[in-house]
């Protein structure tokens, strides 16, 4: 991998706000001000060519919004997205350029047009980008793609509803691969699938990455899944990145109290009998996020500074390959590796 080549994807101070005000008439009648939901509130990261960056976080943290911003489904309110060194508008200006990025969605039941045959679904990008000449060529390419994802070319004649969830996700992947993309955005690609089928899809995605040199932006709420596929992982909370680290570092030495709480919260299959300490409280509304650090109302390490000053994402003391946005880590009062004393008195 040449060092001089720009990152496949770079995101700089990206923010996206949504107007969630009520309709004009109601607003005037009840004298309610406009309300803004800060789905993504100033995040930066880069994905080097041929690697996987995952964004994890709970529902409402803005990870799916980032995915949609990156492929141009939403326009950023602030900041910018650079694809292969080019601003997204330029990077999506021509069909030849748009061909290079594709997206895989979460719900295999909604991501395929129910009225189209599978062969037409897979061929749509081929036609849109003018990648095939004539029917025979298209047919051959569709058959090849179906083979590539472990389906039979005969399946092309069927409709989506004739397939199981896992098979549909394979069809989505075949469609995404049809334009020979270099970069795939995967928005929770396995969270609607059963666990044995999830393993199939994860293995397939890893194999395709090896074979085709793909770059992934992987969105998920499942830390165990993310560990299997990622090179680097970003943890999001309330529209912000709170920690960004190489995958192994994140799991062996999580730094941000939220990351540590998330890892604590995952049910333990090892049955070590370890008493889990659930993090207390709930995620605040992104319409009125708390001032200062967004995690401070739930954080056992919060002090006055955390309540006022939003922390910046900076290299963490001790593990400099990790960047984290936490005053406690910066000041060295986070006791890495030990259980956080009284990590939130949960109700239980």
């Amino acid at each position: 991998m040449p060092d001089t080549a720009p990152d496949m994807l770079a995101v700089e101070d990206l923010a996206r706000y949504f107007d969630v005000s009520r309709p004009w008439l109601q607003r005037v009648l009840v004298r309610e001000p406009r309300r803004t939901l800060r789905a993504v509130d100033g995040i930066s990261f880069a994905v080097p060519r041929g690697t996987t960056l995952s964004l994890v976080g709970e529902s409402g943290c803005g990870k799916s919004t980032v995915a949609r911003l990156v492929v141009g489904l939403y326009r950023p309110t602030e900041g910018r997205v650079l694809f292969d060194g080019l601003d997204l508008d330029q990077a999506r200006a021509t069909a030849e350029q748009r061909r290079r990025m594709q997206m895989i969605f979460q719900d295999p039941y909604a991501s395929l047009n129910p009225r189209w045959r599978v062969r037409d679904i897979i061929a749509e990008p081929l036609r849109a980008f003018g990648l095939v000449q004539g029917r025979a060529d298209q047919q051959a390419r569709v058959a090849e793609l179906l083979n590539q994802v472990g389906l039979s070319p005969l399946d092309g004649e069927k409709f989506p509803h004739e397939f199981s969830g896992g098979q549909r996700q394979r069809i989505s992947i075949a469609r995404a691969l049809s334009s020979n993309p270099e970069f795939l955005v995967c928005d929770e690609p396995t969270s609607a699938l059963d666990v044995s089928v999830q393993a199939q899809i994860l293995n397939l995605m890893k194999e395709l990455q090896r074979r085709l040199g793909l770059t992934y932006l992987f969105i998920s709420h499942n830390l165990a899944v993310v560990r299997q596929v990622s090179d680097r992982i970003g943890v999001m909370y309330l529209g912000r990145l709170v920690e960004l680290a190489p995958a192994e570092t994140l799991f062996t030495a999580p730094r941000h109290p939220y990351t540590r709480a998330l890892m604590e919260a995952i049910p333990d299959l090892e049955m070590s009998g370890r008493q889990r300490i659930p993090v207390g409280g709930e995620v605040p509304s992104p319409i009125s996020p708390p001032p200062g650090c967004p995690f401070h109302p739930r954080c056992p390490l919060a002090n006055d500074r955390c309540r006022i000053e939003p922390p910046a994402l900076i290299p963490a003391r001790g593990t400099p390959q990790t960047v984290t946005a936490c005053h406690a880590v910066e000041e060295g009062r986070d006791h890495p590796g030990e259980a956080i004393p009284g990590l939130a008195p949960a109700a239980a």
Binding site: Q167, R227, M263, E270
Partner: peptide, 22 residues
Amino acid sequence: LMASIPPLDRRVEQLAQIEGSM
């Protein structure tokens, strides 16, 4: 089923999978 659950404590190159579907 147990083998196909991705482990949290390590990375495995190839997850065990059950072929086909129910």
